[in-house]
């Protein structure tokens, strides 16, 4: 079943149709915190300060920021490889997250999990695609009737994994409060969605009688208004909902591995909220942008100087 909600208006990347209202200052602060956090990671990588790998959410920050106020303390969030924004929009703990990624004192999970494996205060991420949806269904089953829900972020590529369907089936069959947030950025690592998905997410949800809603707006406030009644329904009626965001991956999959054509990268960049807000709302954007950048620089300097994390092996 697809829920119809009036089409959002401020959807064009260029802002050609109309100027959206400026984002609230707290939202802009969070958006820019995540942006500078991610840019800092890429910079630290280049400087050889980080090892392993990292997946930044450049361009997609607005999704968890929009959802942040629709989620309550008792909700459980399951995240994936591209989870820094999901985390920061959930918990204002950038020091702990960076320490986790850098393996420093104060790390959320002692530096064991790193970028892709964080479990902290009802937020859990893991790096194996598709694994999270059955787990989210189980969490949602446990939460059923409490008014809380389980929210799981997955990418469009992850719809290749069979576990996704096994979970959706049970979630609907057992009526669990599960919010599946699909960040449909049109690409999985290097493979365009068209080359790896036959059919559409909406039709797949429909096959299980799972509610589906597609979001094309890039505006945090607008998205919230659009989703609030649907998320309330997940809680009250205890049922799964798939919210599919049409979004764009502005950066590389991980680091330095973007093989997209320049036009494709330019198209993604044209949807970036960052440039648009900088243009449309020069004040307060410039000020908040500078403040967040400086804040993240301080965080990075402080965390880098910390001693290595300690871990007691079980």
């Amino acid at each position: 079943m697809t829920v119809t909600v009036p089409a959002p208006t401020g959807t064009t990347p260029s802002g050609a149709r109309r100027t959206p209202p400026p984002p609230e200052p707290e939202d802009l602060e969070l958006l820019l915190l995540i942006r500078h956090f991610e840019l800092t990671l890429l910079r630290l990588f280049e400087a050889g300060e980080l090892s392993g790998t990292t997946h930044t959410c450049l361009g997609q920050e607005y999704i968890p920021v929009a959802l942040s106020r629709l989620l309550g303390d008792d909700d459980f969030v399951l995240s994936n490889h591209r989870g820094h924004g999901h985390f920061l929009a959930r918990h204002a703990e950038p020091y702990g997250l960076l320490a986790e990624i850098m393996g420093r004192e104060g790390a959320l999970c002692a530096g064991v999990g790193g970028s892709q494996h964080v479990y902290h205060r009802r937020f859990l991420s893991t790096g194996v695609q598709g694994e999270s949806l059955p787990v989210a269904t189980g969490v949602a089953l446990a939460l059923k009737g409490t008014g809380a829900l389980a929210c799981a972020y997955i990418g469009d590529g992850t719809w290749g994994e069979g576990a996704v369907y096994e979970a959706l089936n049970m979630a609907q069959l057992w009526r669990v409060p599960l919010l599946v947030v699909v960040e449909h950025n049109g690409i999985a690592q290097s493979t365009p969605t068209a080359a790896q998905m036959s059919g559409r997410v909406a039709a797949r949800a429909a096959a299980f009688d799972v509610l589906h809603h597609r979001v094309t707006s890039l505006e945090v406030g607008e998205i919230r208004t659009e989703l609030a009644p649907l998320v309330a329904m997940v809680r009250q009626d205890s049922r799964p909902l798939v919210v599919e965001f049409a979004t764009h991956r502005v950066g590389p999959h991980s680091k330095g591995d973007d093989t997209r054509a320049p036009e494709e990268i330019a198209l993604a960049a044209a949807h970036d909220w960052y440039d648009r807000y900088a243009r449309l709302f020069p004040e307060p954007f410039a000020r908040i942008d500078r403040e967040r950048r400086e804040l993240v620089e301080r965080i990075a300097a402080e965390v880098t100087a910390r001693p290595p994390s300690a871990w007691e092996r079980p």
């Binding site: 090892s51 064991v112 790193g114 994390s309 092996r313």
Partner: peptide, 16 residues
């Protein structure tokens, strides 16, 4: 290797 998960942080991974 140790009877352990493999940590992400290099100083911990080395130990395992």
């Amino acid at each position: 290797a140790a009877d352990s998960v493999i940590p992400a942080a290099p100083h911990l991974e080395r130990e395992v």
